[in-house]
Amino acid sequence: MESGQTEPKKGFFQRMQDWVRTHPRMAAIYGILFLLLIVSFLVPVDPPHVAISGEPIFSNGPQWLTNSVLGTIFVDIVLIGLAFLGTRKMTFVPGGLQNFFEMVLEYMYSLSESVAGKNARKFFPYVMTIFFFIIIANWSGLIPGVGSIGINQYHDEHATQEMDTSANADLGSAQLAMVGGDLILVQPRSADAAPAAAEENAPHFVPFYRAPSADLNVTFALALVTMIMVQVFGVQALGVRYFKKFFVWRGDGIGMKLINGFVGLLELISEFSRLVAFGFRLFGNIFAGEIVLATMAFLIAFLLPIPFYILEVFVGFIQALVFMMLALVFFSMATISHEAEHH
């Protein structure tokens, strides 16, 4: 081929034109993405709505009806509905939803059997419900529109949580700031004025739906039930002897007695630290995930949030699994007698 030698070197645009001609579909996709990127810089996006706790949906309605209560009800309906659909017509040769539930339950049951042994049957309903509830709660927060559909409330005597949602703020230099339990978006130069701005009669946006696991009431309710059940299962398995591990007065000489007593005290403290860790671990992960997503969507509305969404799907699953596994481990630890180690 002589043409390869005689042909003059192609310019950049020439080569690009050739490429577009040979790959029209890819070129269209890249073009759309590029356009989206441009648009996302031109069109202002509202700053993320950040509230650390659930807020009442109707400022002059019932105060108990917060968006996280609505979320909890939604998760309940989804779970019970799926369970009904899945087990309505049980067949010996499973199909569809029944097959899915059987697969999940069998996997989880063998998992809990490997941890708890013969107690698995007793612990299973509890840990399985934890897993289902948390994973649906976590993932429900990722549904598009969850944090962005809501109503604007105007400041009145009921409103306790406020935030500055002025869309015309200089978004590029906005920062998150903590104001009286609320995370709000403020500009550096008006940081001092932000608390004052929060008191102003500005519209206050409240989303209808909030992921239940991004509410401390929910996570602490789960943590409380878990730690109470740990004590219950411990007493069931060991009787009153279960409490002996907290109040130890044993050993040779006063020194050993004191050390063992201190260890028992540590056990008692660790029960409470587990409670707090349970509650904040789940809340922190999911709440932080929501803020990350909102912030990314705020910075660049397109493309940028996608990897974070994938990450959050993963985090939602992992947190559900972690809560479940820890509960399972604490349950089985509570059923093991400590005396066996000494005698």
């Binding site: 650390i52 706790s53 659930g54 108990w64 917060t66 996280s68 209560v69 909890t72 309940d76 419900t129 509830f133 339990g181 509410d215 401390l216 009431n217 929910v218 602490f220 309710a221 789960l222 409380l224 039930v225």
Partner: peptide, 15 residues
Amino acid sequence: LGISGGHLISQIINF
């Protein structure tokens, strides 16, 4: 932190 007794108890009952 938004923790209130009523919500906490209702969540426990719910669970």
